[in-house]
């Protein structure tokens, strides 16, 4: 059964149409790669899935509920189920790493201080970030910030995770780390959508791909299906990306 199901999603900004007709679905436990050129609106799709942008038309079904008409307060439980990993971590820069990670726990769980402490050290350990609890985000490298952002998004155990270019601008070491983490979450049965320009990472973690172009899904399928397609959209896209 599909955990995320988007039907004829439409979106424009101030008269400028970004999406005309986007439909795709993601099954439980699956990892979908959402690819497309810069500015085609991949982030807009991802943001709309948890109601950060309001859809102009169509349906967005999350776990069987159409969220397009939800109010901010109704969206809260959707956002607990579906985590969003921001491009640059989006850490709260007035809070320490510890407080950043504690934030969702304090908001949405009844854990006491000791349990929170325990959970956070566990999480930091898993993400190779131990010992940075008391630093502020601006004292960490970009790669580490992204990892903390990822850790914060998943600390309350979401059913699905949306990654917006989690490896953009990272060195090979950090890229590999992020890949490992995405795979680890996938192994736990978490559903995911990955927006990226980084095709090696996409091929390493995604089961299926959707290629967005000109406000529509131009092609979708597994890597093999797309590579054997006679129009060769995926190949054109990848060659285009390499050419940049």
């Amino acid at each position: 059964m599909a955990l995320i199901d988007v039907k004829s999603f439409k979106k424009s900004f101030r008269g400028k149409t970004v999406h005309k007709d986007i439909s795709f679905s993601v099954n439980k436990g699956e990892c979908l790669g959402l690819v497309g050129g810069s500015g085609v609106g991949k982030s807009v799709v991802l943001r709309s899935l948890i109601g950060l942008e309001k859809a102009d038309g169509g349906q967005i079904m999350i776990d069987g509920e159409d969220i397009t008409k939800f109010s901010e307060s109704q969206l809260t439980h959707v956002r607990i189920k579906v985590a969003y990993v921001f491009q640059n971590g989006a850490l709260f820069d007035s809070l320490t790493i510890f407080e950043n990670l504690a934030f969702p726990l304090r908001e949405h769980t009844d854990l006491n201080e000791n349990q929170i402490q325990e959970k956070i050290s566990e999480q930091l350990e898993e993400f190779g970030l131990s010992g940075n609890e008391n630093l502020y985000p601006n004292q960490l490298s970009g790669g580490m910030q992204k990892r903390v952002g990822l850790a914060r998004s998943i600390i309350i155990g979401p059913k699905a995770i949306l990654y917006d270019e989690p490896t953009a601008g990272l060195d090979p070491y950090n890229t590999l780390k992020i890949q490992e983490m995405i795979l680890r979450m996938k192994k736990k049965g978490v559903t995911s959508i990955l927006v990226t320009h980084d095709m090696p990472t996409a091929f390493a973690v995604c089961d299926r791909f959707c290629l967005i172009e000109d406000g529509r899904i131009k092609a979708q399928g597994t890597r093999d299906e797309l590579e054997n397609q006679k129009e060769g959209y995926l190949k054109k896209f990848i060659d285009g990306e390499r050419g940049k």
Partner: peptide
Amino acid sequence: VTQQIDALRALGTS
């Protein structure tokens, strides 16, 4: 600009 406001919303807070 640094998406911290979006992050607050995405983490299910207002």
